[in-house]
């Protein structure tokens, strides 16, 4: 496989949620959302009612991927921040540790300056958490003794068939 699978454990998941929660409160924003570059939602904080999280994740990733493509086209490594301004709500999108996307949705109760500032701080923290996560996942992969952790070693054909029987 080209990229190692992304694995999430309880401890880091909690850390990530705490960081996102603090970011949401400190930046006075409505929603804070973390997506991996392939469009899979990792975690969110704030009022997600009425928000289609899966679509948000996929479109954000598509947006970032297209912008990345544009950057390469003109010889930039990446555009680290995307900002879309709406009539009511604004969306601030930034890359963390080169592999996850941090999305902040805010209205007039906050400001771009404040969001930028808080995002910077939270990004640093998230980066550390993801480093830790990668190390852990790697150790897990190397360590055969931990294999009992993987619930997939014992997947049977029946398991798979039953997914499709309705």
């Amino acid at each position: 496989m080209a990229a190692p699978d992304l694995v999430m454990y309880e401890e880091e998941y909690q850390q990530i949620k705490d960081i996102l929660h603090r970011l949401q409160v400190d930046s006075n924003s409505k929603i804070v959302f973390l997506v991996d570059k392939n469009g899979q939602q990792i975690a969110s904080q704030g009022d997600m009612r009425g928000v289609d999280a899966t679509s948000l994740a996929s479109l954000t990733a598509g947006n970032v991927a297209a912008t990345d493509g544009l950057a390469k086209l003109i010889g930039e490594k990446e555009f680290s921040i995307l900002f879309h301004e709406g009539e009511r709500d604004n969306i601030h999108i930034s890359l963390v540790a080169q592999r996850v996307i941090l999305v902040v949705i805010f209205d007039e109760k906050s400001s771009l300056g404040l969001v930028r500032l808080r995002v910077k701080k939270a990004s640093g923290e998230l980066e550390k958490t993801f480093e830790q996560l990668l190390k852990k996942a790697e150790a897990d992969r190397g360590n055969q003794a931990n294999r009992f952790d993987s619930p997939f070693a014992e997947i049977t054909d029946e398991d798979i068939d039953s997914l499709f029987s309705e």
Partner: peptide, 15 residues
């Protein structure tokens, strides 16, 4: 790149 989330007990695959 499958995303295995042990915390939320989810696997995500892309086709």
């Amino acid at each position: 790149m499958t995303f295995i989330n042990y915390a939320a007990r989810e696997i995500n695959c892309k086709i």
